[in-house]
Amino acid sequence: KDSAEVTIKLKNNRRETVASITETIAPKDVLISKKGSHPTPYDVIHKAADTSNCINIAFLAEGYTETEMEKYINDVKTATDAIFAHEPFLEYKDRFNVIAVKSVSEESGTSVPSKGIWKNTALGSNFDTFHSERYLTTLNLKKVHDWLAGTPYEHIIILVNTDVYGGGGILNYYNLSSTGHKSFKPVIVHEFGHSFAGLADEYAYDWEEIPMYPLDVEPWEANITTLADFKGKWESLIKKGTPIPTPETKDEKKAKNKVGYFEGAGYRTKGVYRGVQDCRMRTNACKEFCIVCKNALTKLIKFYTGE
């Protein structure tokens, strides 16, 4: 509503600032184009009990042509049902408002650079992000927000019309997933854990050790720890005498209820710990978020809605 000074800082994985830029944004600047007077058509998929105090989620269509809009709406409903099938989203369902924005593409599908395939789509998405075959994203953020101008949104979920496995989710950025793959539903929920609440990946592979998290720095994410500064995470859920690392068990019931220091998370097999043996943030096979993630999600939902 008035001029504001905005500073953007780039930090390394030790949270040290390595670059920054400051700009003054003046809303009345004549060079700022006014968007939103003619919002992109959208359907309301789920209406919050109080639309003046809720969490607004906007779905965007990517790689859906005009004749595929019915398919897109059905995919949005599938994704919405998948998210609300999980706690704590089910318990707080009435605090969410969900719309499906009909961003029409000229061509169906998405681009696959490694195969020389480039599609003319609404958001210009593509596989092979950072040269990772399954990392599906869009870097066209202006397009994303232009399509959304004039609609109520805080969190963005982009559905890509492809049957190839892929996606990505980044906190307060967007959640993007392919809709035609058999893992569509668990992936959309997993990626929403990233984009909505900043939950970390709880998996690690021997063949893909990535030193994203320095072992002497506590991760800011609520669901993993290096034990560098564990206070305020899930220590209250752990029984006294629980060993570090906590051994895994083949008993599914015991595994579900046991909270500890399970080693292997944040793309590192050693030195980074998760709270529970399995979770939606660890595998697609797990049917729910663990207690640690549920608590983090609940805290954020209440924060947004003023409880």
Rank of each mutant, 00 (worst) to 15 (best):
F184V: 03
L123Y: 10
G109L: 00
K35T: 14
Y203Q: 02
E16W: 01
D229H: 07
H38A: 00
K102F: 12
E235T: 15
V187E: 10
T305L: 06
T225S: 14
G63A: 01
T137Y: 05
A222E: 03
T67A: 10
H190D: 08
G260R: 00
I244C: 12
F127D: 01
F303E: 12
T246H: 10
M69L: 14
C290G: 15
Y173T: 14
C286L: 11
Q277T: 03
K9S: 09
K256T: 11
K256F: 03
C286W: 15
K71D: 14
I117Y: 02
Y213V: 03
A285S: 12
I210D: 04
K35A: 15
K258W: 00
E209P: 03
N161M: 01
F196Y: 10
M69E: 04
E70T: 12
S183C: 13
T225H: 07
F89S: 08
V101N: 03
Y205W: 08
V189G: 02
Y173I: 05
S178R: 04
G232V: 11
K231L: 04
E191N: 12
S125I: 07
T22F: 10
V144L: 09
T24G: 08
G271A: 14
I83G: 00
Y205A: 10
A222C: 02
E209D: 03
E221T: 12
I238P: 05
T137E: 08
L176F: 07
F230P: 07
I55Q: 03
I32P: 00
T121A: 05
R274F: 03
H181R: 06
E288H: 14
D251E: 09
T162F: 00
I25E: 02
T17K: 12
K35D: 12
K11N: 15
W220E: 09
H131S: 15
A200I: 02
